[in-house]
Design a protein around this nucleic acid. Structure first.
Length: 103
DNA sequence: AGATTGACCGTGT
DNA sequence: GACACGGCCAATC
């Protein structure tokens, strides 16, 4: 165990229920640093275990899909989220319906 | 050890 | 509503 910020993000991201998404800011807050949204994204970028860390369930605060280190990038990410049952609004995720508040 | 980048967020114009 | 700027955190070069 590394007990690093990254490890914490991994653990929390793994807790995200299927069909729900979390914003980087929210995840950062859960990790202990409300302003470390960027650091969260970086941890995700370095992440290689998409089975253990559903990084595709992590989206921007405005519901827009960003990055993704696998498949076709945001394209694959959107497909996966759509399959998971996440509600999409235009080209973004409907946070009103699919944002996981951590409860 | 220092400097730079990066899958961001909030606010202002 | 869209575009631009600055600020914060951690990891990587």
């Amino acid at each position: 165990m590394k007990n690093s910020f990254r490890d914490r993000v991994y653990t929390i991201a793994a807790k995200i229920p299927k069909g729900k998404v979390v914003t980087y800011g929210q995840l950062a807050k859960m990790a202990g640093s409300p302003q470390a949204a960027r650091a969260v994204g970086m941890s995700m970028r370095c992440n290689t275990d998409r089975k253990k860390v559903p990084c595709h369930r992590v989206v921007a605060s405005n519901g827009a899909l960003t990055g993704y280190a696998f498949g076709k990038g945001v394209t694959t990410k959107k497909e996966i989220l759509l399959k998971e049952g996440v509600v999409f609004k235009s080209n973004k995720v409907d946070l009103i319906r699919s944002q996981w508040t951590g409860r």
